[in-house]
Amino acid sequence: MSTYEALPLSVDRETASEIIHDRPPRRRKVGVLTPAYVASRAVTYVIMAVTILLTVYPLIWMVLGGFKSGSEFYANIWGLPSSLDFSNFVYSWNAGNLGQKFINSIVVTLGTMALVLPITSMAGYALAKIRFRGRRAIYVFILLGIMVPFGVIAIPVFTVIVDLGLLNTLVGLVLVYTANAIPLGVFLMYSFFESIPDELEEAAQVDGCSPFGAFFRIILPLARPGLATQVILTGTSVWNEYFMASLLIHQDSLQTLPLGLVIFTSRFGTNYPQLFAALTIVTLPMIILYLSAQKQFISGLAAGAVKG
């Protein structure tokens, strides 16, 4: 209020409100840069800078640590490495058998998506668009799955996987991840399909498409944004998953990256530069992927991370 009163009377209504909210005026006017305004912006910039530093510096530190030699690591905690020596990366890659673990992680992630995407879009479509007996019951049933946090049933799921003879198989892991992604995925796809007008597929069916045909030819191409959200959501959570993997996989050659990293740490935990090199190797592809598609990542995760 005081800001408002302090303004020169000649300032128009729009500019006044912009100043009160610290929105920089589109047409900058002299006399707008009051000391309070400048100070508030300065404070904001400082807070922004500190937050960015707090977030990014540990990561930079991690990458730089991978280049340091053992003694350099302790002597020079803060500084840049003396040389761009990739030997730690080579060592970690080989000692941790990271190539194999990359392949396992890729197989599990792609396998999960290959199941989750068709299953959730089919179910979401059927529940949103096909009027059939029992659809309400099915919808409620699947959605109730959201109420059952996966961590809580981890041990029972472990027992079921043992019963099915799928312990120590990547298939078991894929099935569990798929089930975990399904309730939320169906919900997302359902909301998506519901927003597509009925007339579209009615027209398709009048033209002789079966419900299946209408789904694959007309509706699915329209649902691409919903699918993209799911790819990001399922992809990131599966790629990063540790808990279930640590219960279901007890064989070196089948470990996914997070699991392999933990084992690597317990075995080579005292070789910090090599450990940091391993962390960097594992993290970098994900960060590059994120930076190249950050808009999709941010909106995708914001849309669906409901399940944590």
Binding site: I119, T120, A126, L127, I138, L175
Partner: peptide, 12 residues
Amino acid sequence: TGWLMALPAVVF
């Protein structure tokens, strides 16, 4: 059709 399309999700 409805049941068939929703079935995999229900099974999982």
